[in-house]
Amino acid sequence: MAQSRAGRLAPVVEMAEKAEKAAVQRLGHFQGQVRLAESKLADLEAFRLDYQEQWIIRGSSGVSGQWLLGYQGFLAQLGTAIDQQRQSLVWHQNNLTKARDSWQQAFARVEGLRKLVQRYMDEARKLEDRREQKLLDELSQRLPRQDPY
């Protein structure tokens, strides 16, 4: 009976394993998205730093008012892009956190089901061992006893 319980759980375990595998794939996807967003943010910040260094170089020789307005306008646009990229990074990090939580729940479910199946199999094995021992005991009692003398 316990063995059949383990057998009946096999499709449930298989479905849980598929769900866990899908959760792992989602987790990997979101990890990649976070890395990409971090890389874009780093690129934007490096570009802003380079652009600000241009001010130092160009400003030391004097600049026109028009150049200064263009510089400040572009720097403001760059700041906006960096802020948006930071928001994007936070959004991707939140998705990653949710995906990690989802995977942890799926993993725990699979592990719990595997332990349950193992317990059912152990119970079935113990039951079968007891039956065998009982049968052997009955057979040994039925055998004629031989006198050692």
Rank of each mutant, 00 (worst) to 15 (best):
Q33I: 03
Q25K: 12
K18V: 13
A23W: 10
D101I: 12
Q93G: 14
S60D: 08
Q52R: 15
L75P: 00
M121N: 09
V117Q: 08
L44A: 14
G65R: 10
F30T: 13
G70W: 09
Q31M: 01
W55A: 13
Q52P: 00
L27R: 13
I57S: 13
A124V: 07
G28A: 08
K21C: 06
A46E: 11
L136Q: 15
E128Y: 04
E53F: 06
Q85L: 05
E38H: 07
G62S: 10
N94Y: 02
T80H: 03
Q66P: 02
L89D: 03
A81G: 03
E45V: 05
L27H: 12
Q33K: 15
R130V: 11
I57G: 07
G70Q: 13
L116V: 04
L96D: 06
E123R: 10
T97Y: 02
Q104K: 14
F107I: 07
V34M: 05
R48M: 06
D101H: 15
D122Q: 09
Q104H: 05
A19C: 00
G62C: 02
E17K: 14
D129V: 05
K40D: 01
H92R: 14
R114W: 00
S60P: 00
Q105I: 09
L68C: 05
L36W: 02
R131T: 07
L44P: 05
R58M: 11
G62L: 04
A81W: 01
E45I: 05
A46T: 13
G79Y: 01
L75N: 15
Q52E: 10
D101M: 08
R35C: 00
R86E: 02
G59K: 05
A106H: 04
G73W: 01
